[in-house]
Computed example of a mutant assay.
Amino acid sequence: MTTASSTAVPTLIGSVQRALRLLEAVGTHREGAPAKQLAREAGLPLPTAYHLLRTLTHEGYLRRENGVFLFGAAAERLVGGRAPAPRRGVIIESLAHWADVIGAPVYCAVYRDGEIDLVAVADTPDFPAVEEWAAFRETGHAHALGQCLLSQLDERAREDHLDRHPVQPLTRYSVRDRPAFLDRMRSMNRTEPVVERQEYALGTVCAAIPITVGTAVAAMAISLPLDQEERLLPAVEQLRCEVTSLLRSFVFSISI
């Protein structure tokens, strides 16, 4: 008599199948791809894709850089047998929590080796992150995260950055030139959030706060649609009040 266990058809786990389709989609893009494109190519609803991408990122199979998803250290180890590397999952998980609680995308960036480095972004289908339509690290003068990071540099380092990445208006609301931008830097109050309104992306407002972690130059930010601007300052204040609970995770990620 044949036992049930020997004749049973293996159960296909739908979530695993969907995750694998996303990984396959990521593998076709050497420079990475955004969530919307991956969802479309994998044939998945965007909310489902967001959930799986977040899980895969947390587990180290993917990483998110400058708005696109690429293979992470865990995926690379599967095919290359590489030694384990530090993951950004802890900080990404923390940011994802606050994106849900605050109801806005949360961004984390550092200034490292003379460049703006976007460490992590957490968003949701209802509150998507700003699409990177102009190279993020080259347009720090136009977005709140970049302005917040550059305001923490000394004048020499700031001038050096602007030599390599000149001030150019991206929208009709952007700072127009280098002297105007430097004047803004000098007038900033380090205890107040850095706010930009439609300087990087039309229809979007953003606020950033500096993060003190040893000698690191770092910042966190949120963005909102222009028609929700009244939520901006209360939301960033909520983030600032809770940021102490994130610092331990942030310290872990700062060296990645």
Rank of each mutant, 00 (worst) to 15 (best):
P105F: 04
V106E: 00
Y107P: 03
G114D: 14
E115N: 06
L118I: 15
A122W: 00
V130Q: 08
E131K: 13
A134V: 13
F136S: 10
R137Q: 13
G140T: 08
G140V: 13
A144Q: 04
G146F: 03
L153D: 03
E159M: 04
D160I: 10
D163H: 08
H165G: 05
H165D: 05
P166D: 06
V167E: 01
Q168I: 11
P169T: 15
R172Y: 04
Y173L: 15
Y173V: 08
V175P: 03
R178G: 06
P179D: 00
P179E: 06
A180F: 01
D183F: 01
R186A: 15
S187R: 14
P193V: 13
P193Y: 12
V194Y: 07
Y200P: 06
A201P: 01
A201M: 14
A201L: 11
L202T: 15
G203C: 12
G203N: 12
G203W: 07
A208E: 05
A208P: 04
A208N: 00
A208V: 02
A208K: 02
I209P: 02
V213S: 10
T215Y: 08
T215N: 10
V217L: 13
A219H: 09
M220T: 11
A221N: 12
I222A: 05
S223W: 06
L224W: 00
L226E: 07
L226H: 11
D227F: 12
E229T: 08
A235H: 07
A235V: 07
V236I: 15
V236R: 02
L239M: 03
C241R: 09
V243D: 02
S245K: 11
L246S: 14
L247R: 14
L247M: 14
